[in-house]
Design a protein around this nucleic acid. Structure first.
Length: 484
RNA sequence: GGUCCGUUCGUCUAGAGGCUAGGACUCAAGAUUCUCAUUCUUGCAACAGGGGUUCGAUUCCCCUACGGACUACCA
């Protein structure tokens, strides 16, 4: 066979796509692409009990949206199919029996959970020494059985991990794991090895949680006399608890699935960028990358051994950087679904609104709340008109807003520039600074101390009528408060 | 309990015997801006501990502590 690099992503269709899982897919993808190799998708559904309807589609969708396009897989075929393990059932039994024939595995008739043969230390290898006759007899009786791997009782097994270096383990610490379950399906551990070999996988990339079971996989390759692939174990992704402790990343830390993150308004390219940096470093000071740049820069030497903590704050920042890289048009299109302005007067002004929002949101889900005040004037505290820095008081606010109302009444060109020129000139003729004039205007228009965009932007967005209405209301409230 | 893995600012990391231990996020302060945000400047903040090896250890070795993973007829 050729020496083309082949990596695979082998998820189980058990529901949503965990971010740790996606990171594994990303690295397998990056490595394959960076080496000019092929990236294969295989669905590992040997546990029918855990199968979740629609989960396979989530896997396809995630890879597509994240841009991790595979070269072979159930949906697109390939020369090594089928790519779904449940469709390969017959293969595993055949190989399991071959191992039995080679003396590398054996039939086991012990009952699951039997206290006699199983203990916290593992299976006591009760059936390991059954004679061929005993086996034949029990088989003839139709007794349920599993096939177990005959692990060497002595010696060590070791391999050179591309990330962790040489690791060796005493065989006596390994147990005779089950290869073929009593339902005839292979265990993950077994199917994984068979398929990786049959599919010509050259580099096995997966989370470091598999580090301690890897010797068993290697022993399997040796039992078959197959050539061992390269291994690349990836550090885990953790989450930080409120009390500062660290634990496996889970729901309580925030959104942990790709789709949940996307729904929250994180851009797929920002998510892949961020998780690439979790456990890998380009060894430069650049932090923002496109997927293509990651492919070009990816190298095994940048992969870490120690686990990383997922930091939502930093993800926010990475996302904001990717938002900044978009054109205004792209951003407007992506953010529109989050705005909630369909068939409102604001709809026509969306391009302008989006351009104001673009530098002000970290994630798309923040869009709606930021423009609520445009849809409806919020209830606000009249005290906001008072601002020491601008020497703004109730009296000055009333006077200024009245003047503004007056000036705008005759304004026919309702655009930001005209509005600004008009009000700027007004401030000058009143002998006050722009800031003094705009402060009460913005409060009355928005009911907020801080708004995306300045007072003239808001005037423009609200339109002449609504603006006048809000300004008048502001004056009314100021007068009420004054007399009260 | 056993096996394996890990340990640089709060977090992500650079560093591969000699550096004022660098960058980023967060946080704080300042500049700019009609508010806010953006942008820019500045600041706070780290080599887990103990032994070695060495002229010299963040860096190499050992021990301890702490953290994590695995220890299913789950993947």
């Amino acid at each position: 066979m050729s020496d083309v690099v082949r990596t695979r992503f082998a998820p189980s269709p058990t529901g949503y796509m965990h971010i740790g899982n996606l990171r594994t897919a990303l690295f397998a993808f990056l490595y394959a692409r960076s080496q000019g190799g092929r990236f294969i998708l295989r669905i590992e559904d040997t546990d029918q009990g855990r199968y979740v309807e629609g989960a396979t589609d989530i896997i396809y969708d995630t890879l597509r949206i994240a841009g991790l396009q595979h070269d072979e897989g159930p949906d697109i075929g390939g020369d090594f199919g089928p790519y779904v393990q449940s469709q390969r059932k017959g293969i595993y039994r055949q190989y399991a029996e071959e191992l039995v024939a080679r003396g590398e595995a054996y039939y086991c008739f012990c009952q699951r959970g039997d206290k006699e043969t199983e203990s916290p230390e593992g299976y006591n290898r009760h059936c390991r020494c059954l004679t061929p006759e005993q086996v034949k007899e029990q088989l003839a009786q139709g007794k349920p059985y599993v096939i177990r791997q005959r692990i060497p009782l002595e010696g060590t097994t070791s391999w050179d991990d591309l990330v962790y270096g040489t690791i060796s383990v005493d065989n006596q610490t390994l147990d005779d794991q089950i290869l073929l379950k009593s339902d005839g399906m292979p265990t993950y551990n077994f199917a994984n090895v068979i398929d990786d070999h049959l599919m010509g996988i050259t580099h096995i990339i997966r989370g470091s949680e598999y580090l301690s079971s890897n010797p068993k996989y290697i022993l399997l390759y040796q039992a078959f006399g197959w050539q061992m692939p390269q291994y690349m174990h990836l550090p885990l992704i953790n989450g930080q608890n409120p009390d500062g402790t660290i634990s496996k990343l889970s729901k309580r830390h925030g959104a942990v699935s790709f789709q949940a993150l996307v729904e929250e308004g994180y851009l797929p390219q920002a998510i892949t960028n961020y998780i690439a940096m979790l456990g890998w470093s380009p060894k430069s000071e650049q932090e923002i990358f496109t997927l293509d740049e990651l492919v070009a820069l990816f190298s095994v030497t940048g992969i870490h051994k120690s686990p990383a903590v997922f930091d939502y704050k930093k993800l926010d920042w990475v996302n904001s950087q990717h938002i900044a890289m978009m054109t205004d048009e792209e951003f407007a299109a992506k953010a529109h679904p989050y705005a909630g302005i369909d068939s409102t007067p604001l709809e026509d002004k969306w391009p302008k609104i989006a351009s104001l929002l673009k530098p002000r949101v970290n994630k798309l889900s923040e869009v709606a709340e930021k423009i609520d005040f445009l849809k409806q004037l919020p209830h606000y505290d009249v005290g906001m008109f008072i601002n020491k820095k601008n020497k703004s008081t109730f009296e000055s606010s009333i006077r200024i807003i009245d003047e503004v109302l007056n000036a705008l009444d005759s304004e026919t060109q309702w655009n930001e520039e005209a509005l600004y020129n008009r009000l700027s000139a007004l401030a000058q003729s009143l002998g006050i600074k722009e800031g003094q004039l705009f402060w009460p205007v913005r409060i009355a228009l928005s009911g907020l101390m801080a708004t995306p965009g300045n007072a003239t932007d808001i005037l423009f967005l609200l339109g002449k009528e609504e603006s006048a209405c809000r300004l008048k209301k502001g004056v009314e409230r100021l007068k009420e408060t004054q007399t009260a």
